[in-house]
Design a protein around this nucleic acid. Structure first.
Lengths: 155, 155
DNA sequence: CAAAAATGTTTCAAGCTTAAAATGTTTATG
DNA sequence: CATAAACATTTTAAGCTTGAAACATTTTTG
């Protein structure tokens, strides 16, 4: 019962099937992670994503860098950073030499909080993706990489 | 330069990497599809998803079936169906024998509109996933299937 | 150097999303 | 049969998301 039932001419249908399955998997995992994060730390996925991006840049990032890395709109980041700032997890500082720009960085609290969350988050992902072994991980990683490469080259 | 660099002990990091890449790919493709749908038909992805579900059920679906299939909350479906109804693409009918429930179905217009969109949508997906050939499709499909299977068995 | 173009951010309106509470209806149970 | 439990849906409040418009500032260019 292997996947050799479909004819080559149905390639397009197969792509649609794979796309729908990808969508299903990511939505299910995202829902599961969101739920656990909400219950464990009362935090949302978007906030976590912003903190993760900032954790990699000790010196902070400009708002526009943040929306670039996260691939979300500028206005979106404004709101999320507003709320994180309200919770004392990030801080906005002006960029010297450019009065338009803002540098956002994690506060000490933010960094401690994120590190704690990241460790658990990694375990959760490991658990949720456990049905895929080393071999599968490598092939999936490669195939998906080809897609992003192609999508990126036209930006 | 194959992917055999990581030690077995880093499996958890590899899973995180694959997860982040999956997230990236689906977000990029979703953004691209959303943008094209907006520009071509001025329609959103959630509306398209609802119509797709209804297209498979000539007789219509109850609101709760709809939210079950699409894996979104009940309240969410209420709003989307409201707007689709406002555009004359779907219709709400009462279910005989149960005054609580509602049966939602595509109108003639909705069906025509969806069929037109679905054909183009399939081409777009084919194009966006074109870097993956028949072989890759089959392996990716299988691996992802294992994850959904596991996530589903605990529902 | 003044005007125009580009850049960085925020604001806005509309729509999506969720969890939880509210409403109305049906089914189960004592 | 009354009432409790379950079910189907909607409403609500809060937050996420986008594209476009508005603002402020910096850079380019004629």
């Amino acid at each position: 019962m292997t996947d050799t039932t479909s004819l080559p001419s149905d390639l397009s249908k197969d792509r649609l099937r794979v796309w729908l399955r990808m969508l299903k998997v990511t939505r299910m995992i995202e829902a599961e992670l969101r739920e656990r994060m909400r219950r464990t730390w009362d935090i949302t996925l978007p906030r976590f994503d912003v903190m993760a991006a900032l954790r990699r840049e000790e010196a902070g990032m400009k708002m526009s860098d943040l929306s670039g890395v996260l691939r979300v709109s500028n206005g979106n980041v404004t709101g999320i950073v507003d709320r994180l700032e309200g919770d004392g997890l990030v801080e906005r500082r002006s960029v010297e030499g450019d009065r338009r720009a803002m540098r956002v960085l994690l506060t000490g609290n933010g960094r401690r909080m994120f590190d704690e969350m990241a460790a658990v988050h990694e375990q959760w992902v490991d658990e949720l993706l456990s049905p895929i072994g080393a071999q599968g991980l490598s092939t999936v990683h490669t195939r998906l990489g080809r897609i992003t490469d192609k999508l990126e080259e036209k930006d």
